[in-house]
Simulated scan of single mutants.
Amino acid sequence: MKLRSDLVLRTIGSDHLIVDPSQDSIDLSTVYTLNSSAAWLWEQLKGKEFDQTTIVELLCDNYEVDVEQAQSDAKVLLGDFEKQGLLEK
């Protein structure tokens, strides 16, 4: 799977927002906020093919988290990305 290539991650202050730059006007119903860990993962995954294992490895390599917690977090993150339509079909 891949992240949608038409979406852009913007950081404003301490907020990380995913926006669709093709919108003529800002529609707040299609702006998504990410915490700093999810924003970091977005940057690592942008433009690449990945799966849940990729996310688990990134989390374990860069954060003090055990594999079980990383698997749980990766599953939730991918579910949220899919539900919000942030992945390419």
Rank of each mutant, 00 (worst) to 15 (best):
M1N: 12
K2R: 13
R4D: 10
S5P: 00
D6C: 05
L7E: 07
L7M: 08
V8S: 11
V8H: 11
L9Q: 09
R10M: 13
R10P: 03
R10T: 07
I12P: 01
G13M: 06
S14G: 13
D15T: 10
D15N: 12
H16G: 02
L17M: 03
I18R: 06
I18E: 09
I18A: 01
D20P: 02
S22E: 12
S22Q: 13
S22G: 05
Q23V: 08
D24L: 11
S25P: 07
D27R: 13
L28K: 09
S29L: 11
S29R: 14
T30A: 15
T30Q: 15
V31P: 15
V31N: 11
V31Y: 05
T33L: 14
L34T: 00
L34Y: 00
N35E: 05
N35A: 00
N35T: 04
S37T: 14
A38F: 05
A38N: 13
A39P: 05
L41Y: 06
W42H: 03
E43F: 06
K46S: 14
K48H: 12
K48W: 09
K48R: 14
E49R: 12
E49L: 12
T53Q: 14
T53I: 10
T53D: 14
T54N: 02
T54M: 04
I55C: 03
V56A: 07
L59Y: 03
L59I: 03
C60A: 08
D61W: 08
D61H: 06
D61L: 03
N62Q: 06
N62E: 06
Y63V: 01
Y63T: 06
V65I: 06
D66M: 09
D66I: 01
D66W: 01
E68K: 10
E68A: 09
Q69W: 09
A70W: 04
A70S: 02
Q71A: 08
Q71S: 10
S72G: 08
D73R: 11
D73S: 13
A74M: 09
A74P: 05
A74W: 09
K75G: 00
V76G: 08
V76W: 00
L77V: 11
L78N: 05
G79Q: 04
D80K: 12
E82Q: 15
K83D: 07
K83Y: 12
K83P: 00
G85Q: 02
L87S: 04
L87Q: 05
L87T: 09
L87Y: 08
E88V: 13
K89I: 07
